[in-house]
Simulated assay, not measured.
Amino acid sequence: MEVTKAQREIRSVYINGAVGQAVSGVIWLLSASLGTFLSVQAGVISLFVGGMFIFPLTQVALRLSGRSATVSSENPLDGLAMQVAFIVPLLIPVIGAAALYNINWYYPAFMVVVGVHYLPFVFLYGMKAYAVLAAVLIGGGVTIGWTLPDSFAVGGWVAAIALLVFSLYVWRHD
């Protein structure tokens, strides 16, 4: 299978990634809300645990919409998608180290890691828009961590909004 055909199938099956971004955005929104209105601990735990369910929830949402939730076995990019998915969990210790140093760096560190995780999506989906999302998350995480080191939930809110807006954008644009 040619790369452009494989990318087209990835875009078609996953609706340009819109469903996954929406699921991520809702999890970040829930976490930011809990971190703001309940406790720092609730915000931390909800993003950590919720993040483990992004892919399964995306699969459920795609299936409930009547769409196929998997690419063909001939698609060579399926392996890349699996590898990209492991970037975030493998970097959890880095996020943990940042949060141990300053708990207010939890969301900014997560933003940087998730932003880096989106860089390979540029090739995976064949969409340059993912470079913009990556830049917003990475740049936002660094900026918030640097300029607001005493504010806990700002990064959670910024990431939630960025992911939800992005999901609407890619859903509407092919």
Rank of each mutant, 00 (worst) to 15 (best):
M1K: 06
E2V: 04
E2W: 01
A6M: 02
R8A: 15
R8T: 15
E9A: 13
R11S: 14
S12Y: 04
Y14G: 13
N16Y: 05
N16K: 01
G17H: 01
G17R: 00
A18R: 01
V19I: 12
V19K: 02
V23Q: 09
S24I: 07
S24A: 13
V26L: 12
V26I: 11
L29W: 05
L30I: 15
S33F: 13
G35P: 10
F37R: 03
L38K: 05
S39W: 05
V40E: 10
Q41K: 08
Q41L: 13
G43M: 05
I45D: 08
S46D: 11
S46I: 10
L47Q: 09
F48M: 10
G50A: 14
F53Q: 03
I54G: 09
P56F: 06
P56S: 10
L57A: 15
V60H: 07
V60S: 12
L62I: 05
R63I: 14
L64M: 14
L64W: 09
S68H: 08
S68N: 13
A69V: 04
A69D: 09
T70V: 15
T70H: 12
T70L: 15
V71G: 12
S72G: 14
S72R: 02
S73V: 14
E74P: 15
E74C: 13
E74F: 11
N75W: 03
N75H: 07
D78F: 11
G79E: 02
L80V: 11
L80W: 04
A81R: 00
M82I: 13
Q83I: 09
Q83C: 15
V88Q: 03
P89L: 02
V94P: 12
I95S: 13
G96C: 15
A98C: 14
A98Y: 04
A98D: 06
A99K: 01
Y101G: 15
Y101M: 11
N104I: 10
Y107T: 05
P108Y: 01
F110W: 04
M111P: 10
V113R: 00
V113E: 03
V113N: 02
G115I: 01
H117S: 06
H117P: 13
Y118H: 00
Y118V: 00
F123P: 03
L124V: 01
L124S: 03
G126Q: 06
K128E: 05
A129H: 05
V132Y: 00
L133E: 03
V136T: 05
L137M: 07
I138H: 00
I138Q: 00
V142T: 10
V142E: 07
G145H: 09
W146I: 12
W146H: 11
T147N: 06
P149M: 03
D150T: 10
S151A: 14
A153Y: 07
V154T: 12
G155Q: 04
G155S: 13
G155D: 09
G156K: 00
G156D: 05
W157C: 14
V158Y: 03
I161T: 12
I161F: 12
A162Q: 04
L163R: 03
L164Q: 04
L168I: 13
Y169K: 06
